[in-house]
Structures are given as C-alpha cells and as structure tokens.
Design a protein around this nucleic acid. Structure first.
Lengths: 288, 288
DNA sequence: TAGTGGTCTAGACCACCGG
DNA sequence: CGGTGGTCTAGACCACTAA
C-alpha cells in the first residue's frame, strides 16, 4: 500500500487552497478555481497588450511558478484560452497570441445581382486582390449524389445525381475557406460545361447568364458552429475557432439553379450586407 | 525518495501504449492519442444515434473501464466533445448530448424596409410567436458613452454620449440573445422618448419613422467568435458554443441613425437574407 | 447517502523545435 | 542538445444532484 506524502491537507496541494493568487498582484474576490485565475489573468494581459499578437507566452514551467500551481492546472487554464481562440499552441514551441487580420466579404454585392457585366471574372479573386493579398485555390469537379440538405434547397429528389464544383481557397497560403457548389442534373444536362473539370474562366454564374439562365434572386443562410475534426484539418484550424457557414441558393425566374455552401474560418472572416437605400453610405470614409 | 510502482513501462500505464483500442471494436489505423480515440468513438456514436439528443452518456468511471484509460484521459476526450458543442456537462449530473432546436431569423424582412405599416409591434415577439414559443425579455435603457466601434459606425465623435437600449431575450426561459442599440445624442435630443426607460410599444424604429426619421437603408455585419466569460454567463452557455454576432447600422437619407448589435447563441440561431427577385420562392413548400 | 462531475497535484515519457 | 508542449497515470478532496 502506498501513501503519498502530501501535506496532509485538502485539494492535494499544501498551499493555494485555490484563492489568494499569491505572488501576483491581481486576485479575484472569492474562491475562483485556480485554472480560471490563470486564464483570466492571462486573458487580461493579452487584452492590455502585455502580450501582443504573435508574441510568445511564458512557458508552462514559468507560469507554474508564477501561479504556484501544478502543470496540469496551468495547462487547463491555457487550454481555456486556446478554446476561446486567443492562443495557438503546438508541440515544441511556446504558446502564441493569435493575430487576426480580418477579411470582409460583402455578400450583397459579391455577385452582382441584376447585371452580370461589371468587372468580374472570378468574384473571389477580385475581392481578395482588392485587399492586396495573394490568393490561390484548389479546384475540383465531381459528379455526386446531391446531399440531402442541398437537395431540399434545390428542390430535386433526394439521391439524385448532380455536379459538385468544389474549391478550397487560400490567402497568402493560409487556408481561408472551402466552397462547394451543387448544380442539379437538369441544368448540367442543358449546359454541360458545368461538369467539365476546368475552372470556368468567366465564372460559372456568368457562364449560365450568357446561356439564358440568369440568377435573379438569392436565398442566403448564415450560421456558425465548431468544426468537425475533418473541417479543422481542411482549414488548418485548431479547437477554439468557430466556422462561419454561408449557404446561398440561387434562383432563376421559376426555380433554384444552384446551391453554394461556403465554410469560412470564423476568426478571419466577416460577412456584410447592404440593404435598401444607402446613398448616405457613399459619403462614408471610416465605415469599412 | 518515492518510486511509483508503474509497470516499468513508458506512457505511465502498463498497457494501452496508446493504440489498439482494446476491448472496443473500432480502432484507428495508427497511434492516435487515446483521448482522441475516446472523443472520436463517442462522437461517432452520437452521430449514429446510439446516444440521441438529451441522452446521458455513460459515467466517466464506465468510460474509464471501457477505454482502459485513466480518468484524466477520459475527461480530456469528453472535454473535446464539449468544446465542439456536442455535449453539456455540469457537476453532479451525467454528460448529456446537446439538443438543438434552431430558430431562424430573416434579416432582410425583420424590419420591413420600405413600409413600416405591416403587422409589427415588436418584430422579435412576432417572429418568435410565429414559431409557437413563449418569449420574454429583460429591458433597460441607459445614457452611456458610445463605445469606440459603435461611434465609428454612427459617425459620431468617440467619447460622445448616447442612449443605449439593451435587451436580453429568452425563449421558453432559455437565454437566446442580447441586443444593444445605440442612438446618437443628436437623435435623442430631438426625440427624447428614446431615452425613456420603457419599452416603446410600437417599436422604436416605428416611433422614429412616425416622427420623420425613416430608416431607408441598412448596413449589416455578421461574424462569429467564442464567447468571453461574461458573454458565456449572460447567455448561459458553456465553452464550445460560438456566438453569432449581427451588427446592423440603420441609415436615414443622409446619415446613420442607430446601430444595433445582436449577440446570439450560435447553436440555436440561423440568420437568412432574401435578395433580389424571389418569385420562385413563393411556390416553395419545403424550403423552411 | 451514493454517485457524478469539478478541481488539483506529482510525476512520468514522448515528440518536436531550436540553437 | 536542452527546452517546450503533448499525452498519460494514480490518487486525492470537493461540490453538486438525485434518490
């Protein structure tokens, strides 16, 4: 039988009956778990700029001493900050404060509703290039069974085949978003270039418009959730970064013609809409 | 000096050199961390309906035996699922599979753009009541310094005073969202009822419209991130549930008149927009 | 009261990164 | 190589919940 030579006290440790925050200045009113104190303290210091974007945090060993806590407790606190999206961590290197450069996508002018003539070849490249970054993308086209949820939006029979045009986008080599557009079979039969494995130069929306299939209305859905492990891998994000999901169903005069599901890293992307009469906005300056 | 009677082997434990997944059938190709195996296995079982929404998971003790792992390792796996938003946990009760009933808000018709006459008293109650739930809300009005980011959107000097109308909304007693609307000082001076601590029956947008301040355009911004501890408390969510944030700036013919920031529980809310000509949508049926 | 999860410690071996 | 984080164990006390 083995007896651990503890300090004969509760909580496992001798001191720090979780409270007092000891050596450090900041302490909390009453009995907050130690790991929370660690997280809260560091979070505040990040907010105050003690640790700026890209900076390394002190090592676990140092934090252990500073907070007079065990390694696991310190790690629990750090884990919290990781799960809030404030820190990055990877083996062999120090915890690092995340830096955020946010890309804003204006969904109400992304594809020009009424008149497809303006500027565009590929709307995404344009948007990104306008912000002075280096975009590139992986692209593939498949013939697949339309997924259940997409089939509902496209009003096709569940299980029916359709074309999937898939695209993963990078900005300066950072995975940015994945985009999957499904076209129903009837459309592809009539306009077979949709199924060809090349990127369509003029943009597929434009291609369809030129062939008489004009998208005159969109139904957009926006939601957020945490990534599955596959999604996390695909977008190279760890836990703590939520996804921003944008599902756009495009309509011709009488029926849906395509459904696009775009999955963004939530920490790097915002989406905007301009609605109604915004003459007042043209005189802006600060309003990004 | 104390020597722990380990199995004289690595990894601390005797067996389970993280691999093989022992007693259970499912195992992964090669040396995936044990806690990941725990998480992946349980995640798959949840997806397969072995554990449905609202069900209790086996206790940590049972899982410890099933996976032949230490308690901490099992907990690490469970923690992952919590952080993915799949599980709830609280002291004294078993881990529970989260159930999601999603509320969809149509932002493009939420406040009727052109003509304020239709239906509304309070747009939120209407939306919610239409879905057959019991809404209620906490409400307060304050005179505050307009926050930096809001000031930019309202085009007022940073540090200027303004009115904040704050609202926390519940559906069937579950906190659903918080909403903070800021009005600039010049507007409040002209229309002082904005600063009164009562809910405005007809809705403040309507109130302003009746007094000649019509909002004819909106600029909407949508984003997601993990909640801060205060936000988590306010919306009663644990880690693992991202926020969905909606910032609407309303414009009159010549300038912004208000800025509303709505913070939703991301797991319970979707936002939609209808753009352009959607005659085709009126003939729907399944498209929620 | 019995059982569950929450917090904490101490110590171990590993994989990875940089100098 | 030394230092950092990643994974894991064993055991302890606590707080909460439900029967």
């Amino acid at each position: 039988m083995i007896v651990h030579p503890r300090g004969a006290t509760s909580q496992g440790g001798t001191h720090n009956m979780y409270q007092q925050a000891g050596s450090v200045g900041q302490d909390e009113p009453m009995s907050k778990p130690l790991y929370r104190q660690v997280a809260d303290t560091l979070r505040a210091e990040i907010a105050d700029g003690v640790f700026g974007p890209g900076d390394d945090l002190p090592s676990e060993r140092e934090l252990r001493e500073r907070f007079d806590a065990s390694r696991n407790t310190v790690r629990q606190g750090l884990q919290l900050l990781v799960s809030e999206g404030l820190l990055n961590s990877s083996q062999g290197r120090a915890y690092q404060v995340r830096s955020h450069e946010i890309f804003v996508l204006n969904a109400s002018k992304f594809e020009n509703l009424q008149f497809s003539q303006r500027e565009d070849g590929d709307s995404y490249d344009n948007e990104v290039l306008h912000s002075g970054r280096q975009p590139h993308q992986e692209f593939r086209v498949e013939m697949v069974k339309v997924p259940q949820d997409i089939a509902e939006r496209l009003k096709v029979a569940p299980g029916e085949q359709g074309v999937l045009r898939f695209c993963r986008r990078f900005v300066d080599d950072t995975p940015w978003s994945t985009q999957a557009t499904h076209y129903p079979k009837w459309l592809v039969d009539a306009h077979p270039r949709l199924a060809e494995p090349d990127d369509i130069e003029e943009g597929s929306t434009r291609y369809l418009a030129d062939r008489g299939i004009e998208q005159i209305g969109y139904h957009d859905e926006l939601m957020t959730r945490m990534p599955t492990p596959e999604e996390a891998r695909e977008l190279q994000i760890g836990p703590g970064v939520p996804l921003l999901i944008w599902i756009r169903t495009g309509f011709s005069t009488d029926k849906p013609v395509r459904c696009t599901r775009t999955t963004f890293r939530g920490d790097l992307n915002h989406i905007t809409y301009d609605l109604g009469d915004l003459r007042a906005l043209t005189t802006r300056g600060d309003l990004h």
